[in-house]
Design a protein around this nucleic acid. Structure first.
Lengths: 184, 184
DNA sequence: GTCTATATACAGATAGAC
DNA sequence: GTCTATCTGTATATAGAC
């Protein structure tokens, strides 16, 4: 992948995680990289092409991190902390989850991209479910793993959103202390 | 309040809860009501004025519902179900929480409106905290009421967002079953 | 690959007549 | 209160030269 393309993707992603897809324009994106907007169209013919690439790349990187965590010989508590740390890092950069942001803009996205978002969420939940099942002995709760997985992911996505309006990090922290209270 | 003004607010609110503030234009809003966009400016000089009114009205109605719930002689479980039902109703209309939607668009809002969003979230959490304290005996958990409150609200906001990409209602349901598992 | 130039559409907002 | 008309800005996208 060319250097320009990489710079474009990085700048676009940061902008989307802060201001949403509609908050990203080809003009300002081009300005930031030092080219003209018509040149951005050379790399991404339409805006939906750019959105698709951003989601796919985010998905890739996110699951690379998840696989890293899963491969470690750690206790459940530490693995979950590492998972939550991904969201803490996003929050520390004053950003939102790319897929969470785009989910809110679903009305403006095409069906393909919405499907990619759905895939991101269900696969993340599936990863959590397998984690909970693998470490079943370390969980002291009767809540079903799938409910736990959905609640944790929803909670983190919502926590980023609420915290943002208050310049706080308390809600992501709350998610962490809630989930930790269920561990042996 | 005039009838036109009321119609405008209702239509604007529905549109924002589906497509966000940027997905609402004075032109299409005017078309829907049967007036011209310049007439919309008569009621709401700038778009931020409309946003402010929408947040304030949503806040009002939301807390009217909360006060109704709090005044009932119900068990905690039933009160929490009624609270969650507010979000289920939003989801059933294929909408998002108005404040959750605007939180994602925070970058485009002015400071006053962001403050109103923060107020909505903290007051809702405070309401939940007082509810948990009032019904302390019905709670079988060591999790602090404030953590519980933040987790539940974040969870519901995030659940609406994730469910939307999957045309599902499973995540709001998961929030309900998670919180119910903590009740005596 | 990148540019200039432009087509086209739509946004928020205002002036001034009625 | 509502209109017509318009200003101004910005967006996506494309054509065609270099």
């Amino acid at each position: 992948m060319s250097e320009k393309r990489q710079k474009l993707e990085a700048a676009a992603r940061k902008r989307v995680q802060r201001a949403g897809l509609h908050g990203l324009s080809f003009r300002t994106l081009a300005d930031e990289i030092g080219i003209k907007s018509s040149s951005v169209h050379y790399y991404f013919p339409e805006k939906s092409d750019l959105a698709r690439v951003l989601i796919e790349r985010y998905h890739e990187e996110f699951f690379t991190a998840l696989h890293d965590i899963a491969s470690k010989r750690w206790k459940l508590k530490r693995k979950l902390s590492a998972f939550i740390a991904i969201f803490e890092a996003v929050e520390a950069r004053n950003e939102l989850c790319l897929c969470g942001m785009l989910a809110l803009e679903a009305e403006q996205l095409d069906a393909d991209n919405i499907a990619l978002l759905g895939k991101f969420f269900t696969e993340t939940e599936a990863w959590l479910v397998s984690l909970f099942k693998e470490h079943k002995a370390e969980l002291k709760t009767t809540i079903a793993p799938s409910v736990l997985a959905m609640s944790l992911l929803s909670g983190l996505e919502g926590a980023l959103l609420v915290d943002r309006t208050l310049s706080s990090r308390a809600r992501v922290k709350a998610q962490k202390s809630w989930i930790h209270s269920l561990l042996a």
